[in-house]
């Protein structure tokens, strides 16, 4: 006996490839057994395709205000997603996503960008080089202003 009662919504989900493997197999079993439901499936498909071919038209300004004020209006796509994932699942997924972001930003060390101070390092070298070598010729290169562009 099938676990799913065949409805037009279920057929719509079937056409949108939104069913899991078990539900999909159930629907296909029922369709194979019933010519009437196969006809209904064709009608749902035709309706869906017709709607998708409609041009996009902006509604009047007050239309969306009325829609949003009506508590009976339901965003079907959101409702469908909500039904498929329980509230606790959303919370866990949200927490996991947040944790990934935190770990990515805080815990994983970001590469340190360095631009060596060429003039200063050049002087540091000359200063060290002057110890134990000819002092004046080494210090002279420190006393000369270093000209590097930016």
């Amino acid at each position: 006996m099938s676990e799913h009662e065949l409805t037009e919504d279920l057929l719509s989900a079937y056409l949108d490839d939104e069913l899991d493997a078990g539900a999909r197999a159930d629907v296909e079993t029922r369709l194979a057994a019933s010519a009437e439901w196969r006809t209904i499936l064709d009608e749902v498909r035709d309706t869906r395709d017709a709607v998708r071919r409609l041009p996009a038209v902006d509604g009047p300004t007050e239309f969306w205000a009325r829609v949003m004020a009506d508590d009976t209006v339901v965003d079907l796509a959101s409702e469908r997603r909500r039904r498929r994932m329980p509230r606790w699942g959303l919370a866990v997924a949200g927490a996991a996503a947040a944790a990934v972001v935190v770990i990515g930003v805080v815990a994983v060390p970001q590469p340190n960008r360095v631009h060596p101070a060429v003039a200063t390092l050049s002087d540091e070298h000359a200063a060290r080089s002057s110890v134990g070598n000819d002092v004046i010729s080494s210090l002279a290169s420190i006393a000369v202003p270093t000209r590097l562009g930016r």
Binding site: A126, A127, V135, I136, L139
Partner: peptide
């Protein structure tokens, strides 16, 4: 030792080296 002058002076004494313009002040050796 004193080489240069003003901001661009390098001074040395024993192992100590000092360069005024970039603040290098180090005892080497």
């Amino acid at each position: 030792y004193v080489v240069g002058r003003g901001e661009h002076v390098a001074v040395g004494r024993d192992g100590m080296r000092y360069a005024a313009d970039d603040g290098v002040a180090t005892r080497w050796g």
